[in-house]
Structures are given as structure tokens and as C-alpha cells.
């Protein structure tokens, strides 16, 4: 232990970052081509995603091997923690855009369309029959008739699922600190299971919306904000559950010690962040 506690590990050569960039830019160029109706689009996307997934596996294996061989000291751990915290902050700002959009349309622009503020004449001349009540698909009745999504039912069940998963995640963390391997693995497995169950419930909810309620991404501003907010959140739940699965695998391999388990912590922070976003969604999208 002569120097390993006092040195800051600086990697020498990096090949994964270039591959990550190549994978991502290929995927996005493919997606753009696909949106433009070009036939090479989907091929490029598959190729890019393949590169990206190989990169993820390779880079994280490397990180885990390095961590296991004791190359990361306290200082490196702090850098990683800072990195994760600021990344989550950037995610908060990303979700803030869509929450802000919901707030702005509900409280400002939709009432303005209905003649609020100094817009009485505009309302009377352009769309006198428009009634500015939320939920709405606008004066153009864009997307046709729809039913708004209720809060009680699947969304409430999903709230309970995610809140419970937050508890099981913390329970697993306590297990890790107490060197209780069984509690760690059971807690994590439960968290991952609840996460995927959440995604399944949301898939059912979306299916109902599209097939039975007439509610689609094209249902005016209500459909747009509803699916954008819940969709990006659902995507984050998937990512979080995949991260937790990797952490579960590494726990099963016995990688983490009570003192050294950054990967677990980062995954747990991310999971709690996703959890909190859902509470915001449940209140502002479903309840109010």
C-alpha cells in the first residue's frame, strides 16, 4: 500500500472514447437519414448502435478491471463522484425543459389562445369557438378526439413500484455496507425487477392510450407534453435498470467492498434521480 493511496491514476492510451464517438455519430447520421426517408438509414443505425454497445461493454469492463486491481485511489473516486453528480445535474436541466414547456403552455400560452391577457381580439377573430381548458389539443383539434390519461390505475401503481424500488435500492446499499451479501443481491435484484415491471406497465399504458383512448404523440400539446415527459422518463428508467443490472452482476462477482463501491453509488444516485423525476411527473402530468 505504499503509493496506491496517494497517487492519482492517469490512464495512458484511450481507444474506447474514439469508438464511442464513432458509434454515436454513426447512429445519429443513420437516424437522420432514416428520418429523411433514405434507405441506408436503418443499416447505419444498426451499425452505429452495435459499435456503441461493444464500446460500452469494453469500456466498462476496463473500468471494472482497473478498479478491481486497486488503481483508483480516493482522489480518483472523488473525481468520478463529481462527474456523476454534475451529469445528473445536466439531466435535471434536460427534464426541466419539458416540465417548463408543460408549465408555460398550461399557464400562459393556452390561456392566451383562449383570449387571456391582451389577446381577446385575437381569440375572437381567429378561433372564437376555442375553449382554453386543459387538457387540450389546441384550436385546430389536432389529432382528433382523445381521452386524457387518468392518475389512478396504472400510473399510481407505477408510482408505488418506483417508490418501492427506491427503498429496495437503499436496503441493498445497507446490505453492502454491512457486508451482507445476500441482502445486497436480493435488494438489487428486487430493484431491477421493479424497474422493468415499471417499464412493462408503462408499455401497457401507452398501448391503451394509442388503441383505446385516441391519445397519441400527435394529440396536440397535451399529447406532445404527455408522451415527451413520460417517454424520456421511461427511457431513463430503462437505462437505470440496465445500469443496475450491471451493478447486480458485479455484486454477484463480489466486486464491491463497504469502502469502495463507486459504481453502486452512481447507479443508486441515478435511480433515485429517476424516481424523483417520476414523482414530479405523477403530480404535474397525471394529477394536476
Amino acid at each position: 500500500m505504499s503509493t496506491s493511496n496517494t497517487t492519482y491514476y492517469i490512464p495512458h492510451k484511450a481507444t474506447w472514447p474514439v469508438l464511442a464517438t464513432a458509434g454515436l455519430v454513426t447512429t445519429l447520421a443513420g437516424f437522420a437519414n432514416y428520418l429523411n426517408g433514405s434507405s441506408i438509414g436503418s443499416t447505419l443505425m444498426v451499425a452505429g448502435l452495435t459499435i456503441f454497445i461493444v464500446m460500452l461493454a469494453g469500456w466498462f469492463t476496463l473500468q471494472s478491471t482497473e478498479s478491481e486491481s486497486g488503481m483508483y485511489n480516493h482522489g480518483v473516486g472523488i473525481s468520478y463522484r463529481m462527474g456523476m453528480m454534475w451529469f445528473i445535474f445536466s439531466e435535471i436541466m434536460f427534464f426541466a425543459v419539458f416540465f417548463g414547456t408543460l408549465w408555460y403552455t398550461r399557464n400562459l400560452s393556452v390561456p392566451w389562445l383562449g383570449g387571456a391577457g391582451s389577446n381577446a381580439a385575437t381569440h375572437a377573430l381567429l378561433w372564437p369557438s376555442f375553449d382554453a381548458v386543459w387538457p387540450t389539443n389546441g384550436p385546430g383539434n389536432v389529432g382528433g378526439h382523445f381521452e386524457p390519461m387518468g392518475a389512478f390505475g396504472l400510473p399510481l401503481l407505477n408510482t408505488l413500484l418506483l417508490l418501492t424500488s427506491g427503498v429496495t435500492c437503499t436496503w441493498a446499499h445497507h446490505g453492502l455496507i454491512a457486508k451482507n451479501r445476500k441482502q445486497l443481491i436480493q435488494g438489487l435484484a428486487a430493484t431491477v425487477g421493479l424497474g422493468f415491471l415499471f417499464v412493462l406497465c408503462q408499455a401497457i399504458e401507452y398501448h391503451e392510450a394509442y388503441t383505446e383512448m385516441g391519445l397519441t404523440l400527435g394529440s396536440g400539446i397535451y399529447g406532445s407534453t404527455f408522451f415527451m415527459l413520460t417517454g424520456f422518463h421511461g427511457f431513463h428508467v430503462c437505462v437505470g435498470a440496465i445500469i443496475l443490472s450491471v451493478v447486480l452482476f458485479r455484486s454477484w462477482k463480489g466486486h464491491f467492498s463497504p469502502e469502495n463501491h463507486f459504481a453502486f453509488e452512481a447507479a443508486a444516485w441515478y435511480w433515485h434521480f429517476v424516481d424523483v423525476v417520476w414523482l414530479g411527473l405523477f403530480i404535474f402530468v397525471y394529477l394536476m
Binding site: 408555460y104 403552455t105 384550436p139 400539446i221 399529447g223 406532445s224
Partner: peptide, 15 residues
């Protein structure tokens, strides 16, 4: 098909 910036669907280009 979203309407974030389209007044017809209840959105707002000023947003």
C-alpha cells in the same frame, strides 16, 4: 406530429 411550437395544436412558437 407533436405540436410544441404550433398554435393550432395548443403550442406556441414563442415558447
Amino acid at each position: 406530429h407533436t405540436s410544441f411550437f404550433d398554435a393550432a395544436g395548443g403550442g406556441d412558437p414563442v415558447l
